[in-house]
């Protein structure tokens, strides 16, 4: 991993079922993430994804790039645009792109671009990941391939 390197884009599909799954796993039962009635009552266009689900998927992408969990030592972003998730089977697709901006003392700074439908949904998302020797020389066979389609929550799905 070196400064200027562009990391392979990762995609995550998010449906209403994924919001329910995230609510259960995180304990965040805020009804704006599952009730259109309450979401619209507070001025939202409809049910929106948890900002933390978007950030969690971004964290997953970072862990894939870093070579596993435990190597992302800093992660932060502003939730600038709500991700509206329609009540249908298709849901929406989040796209996570990353660029390495600096590598120093075994740590890589990564600037993310997280979009949905071509619009940025996170403000100034950035992270610091540990660059271990294994992470610096990944032996994954599919490096450099197209975007990985990952079902937003179903391990091994997609």
């Amino acid at each position: 991993m070196k400064a200027g390197e562009t990391l392979p884009v990762q995609e995550f599909r998010v449906t209403r079922a994924d919001l329910v799954r995230y609510a259960g796993a995180s304990g965040d039962l805020n009804p704006i993430h599952w009730s259109d009635r309450i979401a619209t009552s507070v001025g939202l266009p409809g049910v929106i994804a948890h900002g933390m689900l978007t950030l969690g998927l971004s964290g997953r992408a970072l862990e894939v790039w870093a070579g596993g969990p435990g190597r992302v030592v800093e992660l932060g972003a502003k939730f600038t645009r709500p991700v509206v998730v329609p009540d249908d089977d298709a849901g929406v697709t989040l796209t996570v792109a990353g660029t390495v901006t600096a590598v120093e003392d075994g740590r890589a700074s990564v600037v993310l671009e997280v979009t949905c439908g071509g619009e940025k949904v996170l403000g100034a998302p950035k992270a610091v990941i540990l660059v271990a020797s294994e992470a610096a020389h990944p032996d994954a066979p599919d490096e450099g391939g197209g975007p990985d389609e990952v079902d937003g929550g179903r391990p091994g799905g997609g």
Binding site: Y22, G59, R60, E63, G153, P155
Partner: peptide
């Protein structure tokens, strides 16, 4: 559970 809910 959390990993499965966040794409992992």
């Amino acid at each position: 559970e959390f990993a499965a809910a966040t794409g992992g």
